[in-house]
Simulated assay, not measured.
Amino acid sequence: MNRKLTLPATNEQKQLIHRLKQQHRLDEDTYRHLIRQYSGGRTSTSAELTKEEARQMISRLLDPDGSNAQGEKRKYRLVCRIYRLSCEISGLNAPYDVDDPVEREMNIAKLNQWLRQYGACKKPVSRQNYEELNATHRQLKARANKERKQS
């Protein structure tokens, strides 16, 4: 039997969902309905959301009319390129399997730790704006190119 591994929502995601609930002044019924909607009817509590369900719900609460969707897609593509580059750099994430979701989470954590210490803006990827992401991408690209030349 081939089951897809789903990761639970992070504590940070759940906290953000609760803050957004308060900011939007959602009553309990509306809030529970949203959770059921994003979980496909599986649950009515944020504690049981998956990471992807929580991400989708947060996106909707942050941008209800979808006006920032294009900018978010652009940022997401850049974050994906940053992650792929990190998997080419020894001492960071190379040569790990990027298809295993658990290992991918560990790789993201290592990347964020590295960025806090050595990154241009000293922030994890999730907290960077588009310009900072571009600077991070350039930094990792230069490092990956340097390693390729040394090989």
Rank of each mutant, 00 (worst) to 15 (best):
94 A>F: 11
67 S>Y: 10
143 R>V: 09
3 R>E: 15
38 Y>R: 04
69 A>R: 05
54 A>W: 02
67 S>I: 10
68 N>C: 14
62 L>F: 00
46 S>T: 08
129 N>V: 03
68 N>L: 15
60 R>A: 09
20 L>E: 02
136 T>G: 08
123 K>I: 02
8 P>W: 03
46 S>K: 01
58 I>W: 02
62 L>S: 07
128 Q>F: 06
63 D>P: 11
135 A>M: 13
84 R>G: 00
59 S>D: 13
119 G>M: 03
109 A>I: 01
16 L>A: 07
5 L>G: 02
53 E>R: 04
89 I>A: 03
94 A>S: 11
135 A>I: 15
115 L>S: 02
43 T>V: 07
62 L>R: 11
134 N>Y: 06
146 K>F: 10
87 C>K: 02
32 R>H: 15
18 H>M: 11
86 S>A: 08
79 V>D: 10
69 A>F: 04
59 S>Q: 12
43 T>E: 07
7 L>S: 03
138 R>G: 04
37 Q>R: 13
128 Q>S: 04
4 K>I: 15
107 N>A: 11
99 D>I: 00
25 R>C: 12
11 N>P: 08
62 L>E: 15
128 Q>N: 05
83 Y>N: 00
29 D>T: 13
30 T>W: 05
130 Y>C: 02
142 A>Q: 14
2 N>H: 12
140 L>F: 07
147 E>Y: 08
28 E>Y: 02
51 K>W: 09
136 T>M: 03
58 I>S: 01
28 E>S: 10
124 P>W: 05
23 Q>N: 07
56 Q>V: 00
52 E>T: 14
106 M>D: 05
49 L>Y: 05
14 K>I: 14
120 A>K: 11
36 R>P: 01
35 I>H: 09
56 Q>G: 02
49 L>I: 01
86 S>P: 01
13 Q>G: 07
134 N>T: 13
65 D>A: 10
134 N>H: 09
129 N>G: 06
112 N>Q: 09
75 K>D: 15
62 L>T: 11
48 E>A: 10
57 M>N: 03
4 K>Q: 10
78 L>C: 05
81 R>P: 06
80 C>M: 12
114 W>Q: 01
81 R>K: 10
57 M>T: 05
99 D>S: 09
18 H>Q: 09
66 G>V: 12
43 T>D: 05
111 L>I: 13
47 A>S: 13
151 S>D: 08
122 K>C: 06
18 H>N: 14
95 P>N: 15
70 Q>D: 14
109 A>T: 09
32 R>P: 04
72 E>L: 13
137 H>V: 06
126 S>L: 09
58 I>N: 01
79 V>A: 10
11 N>M: 08
73 K>W: 12
14 K>C: 06
104 R>Q: 03
14 K>D: 12
114 W>A: 06
117 Q>R: 12
117 Q>N: 11
22 Q>Y: 00
106 M>I: 04
119 G>K: 00
148 R>H: 10
135 A>L: 15
117 Q>V: 14
35 I>A: 07
